[in-house]
């Protein structure tokens, strides 16, 4: 008998006697979290997001967004900007931003600009996945991560985002999904908060109204 069968056999035998401490089925309808006071999903999202350490820009339209992004990047004088998603590449070309569309010299990266899958109002999280051409790398490796999101991508709960991904991808489920809630951080030394432990030190979100 191989280990798999041995273990399964042991489990089956163990479970013949039910647990001594069964749990009564609790209410599964009521939310255990506090009620939202915000009227719309994007306002609730913004409130939650701004409690964290990420930067936030709300853009009334795509045009406003493009001007703001251009302004932001020019101001910072970045020279190593990586963009791998076609839609963003088009926009970048339009506002004349120099970027790299491949992974050559990825080590020198200053900024990665990516889209996202969804935004979660409850926690202020940005959901990314490996199905985006930004891949696994561009949402974790750069010291600065800029995310471009649209108000229509906002959902209320973590659960909603998960269900959305399930239905959207069905049998082609992404190999990696990540809920990002703020910049990379650590508090391993005396519980002192330090940003940029291994992932991006700065997380910047441009939320575009649709």
């Amino acid at each position: 008998m191989d280990s798999r069968e041995k273990i399964l056999e042991k489990i089956k035998k163990a479970l013949i006697i039910p647990t001594d401490k069964p749990m009564p089925k609790p209410d599964f309808k009521k939310s255990p979290y506090i009620q939202f006071t915000e009227a719309t999903c994007e306002v609730a999202f913004a409130d939650a997001y701004n409690k964290g350490k990420g930067e936030f820009y709300f853009c009334e339209s795509l045009e406003v967004f493009l001007t703001q992004l251009k302004h932001y990047l020019d101001n910072k004088n970045f020279t190593k900007i990586f963009i791998w998603e076609e839609y963003l590449q088009e926009l970048a070309k339009f506002i004349k931003i120099d970027f790299q569309n491949n992974d050559k010299n990825l080590n020198d990266i200053e900024v990665g600009i990516t889209l996202c899958e969804a935004l979660v109002a409850r926690t202020g999280s940005i959901v990314v996945s490996s199905k985006q051409s930004a891949g696994r790398r561009l949402t974790i490796f750069p010291p600065i991560h800029i995310v471009v999101a649209f108000t229509s991508q906002c959902v209320w709960e973590i659960k909603d985002a998960l269900t959305l991904l399930k239905t959207q991808y069905e049998n082609n489920f992404p190999s990696m999904i990540s809920f990002i809630t703020g910049p990379s951080q650590t508090a391993d030394i005396e519980k002192t908060l330090v940003l940029g432990a291994h992932g991006p030190k700065e997380l910047i979100l441009f939320l575009v109204k649709e």
Binding site: G135, N172, S175, I180, S184
Partner: peptide, 24 residues
């Protein structure tokens, strides 16, 4: 665990890089 509302990275990994994916 830490008193956070949510930890910074909560990731789900379901396998290796797929054909239509960039990396992994």
């Amino acid at each position: 665990g830490t008193g956070q509302r949510l930890t910074v990275y909560n990731s789900i990994l379901t396998g290796a890089k797929q054909n239509d994916e960039t990396d992994g």
